[in-house]
Design a protein around this nucleic acid. Structure first.
Lengths: 340, 340
DNA sequence: AGGATTGATGTAAAGGTTTACATTCGGAGT
DNA sequence: ACTCCGAATGTAAACCTTTACATCAATCCT
């Protein structure tokens, strides 16, 4: 049991007095090898401490048993729970998960493209709305891939995520039910498809209630705390204010709440606020944030399950799996001021 | 430029009308190949879109150009910034970084051990205070490794992190300077070495000021928000209260602040609170949290630099690199109540 | 009893690289 | 003119697996 060099299949074969082919078979197709031989091999493996060299295995097989999860920002509060769902499902299939962090840097994306090209990963989960490989994206040979959390723009990659429009609809319906008539939408985005869908849900809700759709109440934003803050400042520079802020995500909502509190307003006394995602922080705000919960681990689980379907060459019936979002009522929503 | 199969070195060789050895040399030791040959090869590479198969390369070389970063919880707010430091430095050396997420599950740790054993990573960064390989930890053949953020218990692994004792000392000194005499320490831990050092800094500070060290003011905790909350509840059940809460980390401090606010107390009017780490959330609390800043990207950078020293067989002079922490004064600390 | 079938095992190739060693060739030194 | 040297390139082995094919012995069928 020398520690200097890992035991190879040959060491095991020698010790068990069989050929390397038999060892390999004993591991992968045990029913094809005689019971006593199998036993000898098992013992030899235990003694040598052999573990198969995944590198050689993958080289031979032309595919590995790792799945690459590519994320632009692993600090995203949504990421870790989705990842857990991904990992658990991958594990159930005997696969491992590795995380690639791109920081939105195409150079970095390219490194992972290389990683994929040399078969170091059998498949890919994309945590980003855009293929992160810069201009090489067009010509890239990609392994089976599934987008998650954010629909992927380029290249018909199937997607698993929450039903953004339905979730947004739940938020807007709540605000309308509370009596709000002027409701701002904070965080409009042209580039993020998921956020666009949330805005569509907002508009649908207004239309369904026959409320005016005031473009002056729609503020752009990139989903950061800072963008939420900024939107509030800009709205206050205008003459007409909303009574409620429906935010494209929780981060934005946090920014909005901070800005409102900083100006001395009370929530939900003066203004109501809703978020989207239900990040852990939503519980720790003051007041706690009413928001839409993403079924994060479920998303991860289903995305990985879909990826394995793709790996087995099954063309998936649907290209998009949308999971139902839940409304989480906390303390940031109340009746509008005049209506008290 | 068929997309079906990645180009191999042989494709390049054929196109450039040289042998595969020459291609390999043109890539790795260009000075050993004639200028015109080099040109032909470069062009052939461009035409075929060849990228070297890292799998085969690593198999041959017995080492890869990937570094594995093992973390029990990638949701830790400290993680992402340290990771950025790690990644940038790795990149400067031509290495890539992969993240392994163990969820504190030894089974999962074992998967990464396999990964390491088959040379899929040249080195390892540990984001955890303990080797995550369960009982196999003892016999594990490990590649060069460096601990980060939390000193590693088992097996003399070098460590790069903040100077916990010095940081804690800055916090306690601030509280004492403000006039506090009864200062609780929230989050005592026997198992987490870094946290133990923070407590040591707390004790040193008290001693230096010739203040009584009341064991009743030291509360255990595991560094979670919940543990901070709990500690406050327990302290309130006793008769004597502190005027300030020095918390082992920001998460704990957040829990403490939530519990105090829930009971209707004002911070820092009724009680002062300090944290440790300076996580992003510290800015968004109400009041904003006075804390000790970890130089996170610097830690990552230095840890990776140290790892590369190890990879080059240089025995590192020191086994522990401690970086200086900074006190970040915000609004959660004031004079004690009686002293107003 | 003889041929066919089955089950267990072994042999060897293949996967894409790197590199020690061998080969070739031109030119310098005598 | 011959030897020797160095530069440039080629040949082939090695890294560790998996697996198609070959081999062999034992069992079955008629």
């Amino acid at each position: 049991m020398s520690k200097s060099t890992p035991a190879t299949i040959e060491d095991v074969a020698r010790l068990a007095e069989v050929s390397i082919a038999t060892v390999s078979r004993a591991i992968h197709t045990p029913e094809k090898v005689a019971k006593e031989t199998r036993l000898k091999v098992t013992q030899a493996i235990a003694i040598t401490g052999y573990t198969t060299n995944a590198m050689a295995r993958s080289l031979r097989l032309g595919r590995s048993n790792m799945i690459l999860v590519v994320a632009p920002d692993i600090g995203d509060p949504n990421f870790s729970n989705i990842l857990i769902g991904l990992e658990n499902e991958a594990r159930a299939h005997g696969y491992g998960v590795l995380i690639g962090h791109t920081q939105n840097d195409p150079q970095r994306g390219l490194e992972y493209l290389k990683f994929l090209n040399s078969n170091q990963a059998a498949g890919m989960i994309l945590f980003t709305g855009i293929l992160p490989f810069g201009h090489q994206t067009m010509t890239a040979r990609l392994p089976p891939s599934v987008g998650v959390f954010e629909p992927v723009y380029n290249g018909g990659i199937p997607y698993v995520g929450v039903d953004d429009a339905a979730g947004a609809r739940k938020a807007i319906d709540l605000l309308i039910a509370e009596g709000h008539r002027r409701i701002a939408f904070i965080g409009e985005s042209r580039t993020r498809l998921g956020h666009a869908r949330r805005k569509a849900g907002y508009e649908d809700g207004l239309r369904a209630a026959r409320l005016e759709l005031d473009p002056g109440l729609i503020m752009p934003g990139d989903g950061t705390i800072e963008s939420g803050r900024l939107a509030v400042e800009q709205l206050f520079m205008r003459d007409t204010l909303p009574s409620a802020f429906m935010c494209v995500n929780d981060q934005t909502a946090i920014g909005v709440m901070l800005a409102l509190t900083a100006r001395g307003y009370s929530i939900p006394g003066d203004f109501s606020v809703t978020g989207f995602d239900d990040v852990p922080q939503a519980t720790f705000m003051n007041p706690t944030l009413t928001t839409i919960r993403q079924p994060r681990t479920a998303i991860g689980k289903q995305a990985m399950a879909l990826l394995f379907k793709l790996l087995q060459d099954e063309k998936p019936e649907e290209t998009e799996i949308l999971l139902a979002p839940d409304l989480v009522v906390r303390n940031s929503v109340g009746a509008p001021k005049g209506r008290r």
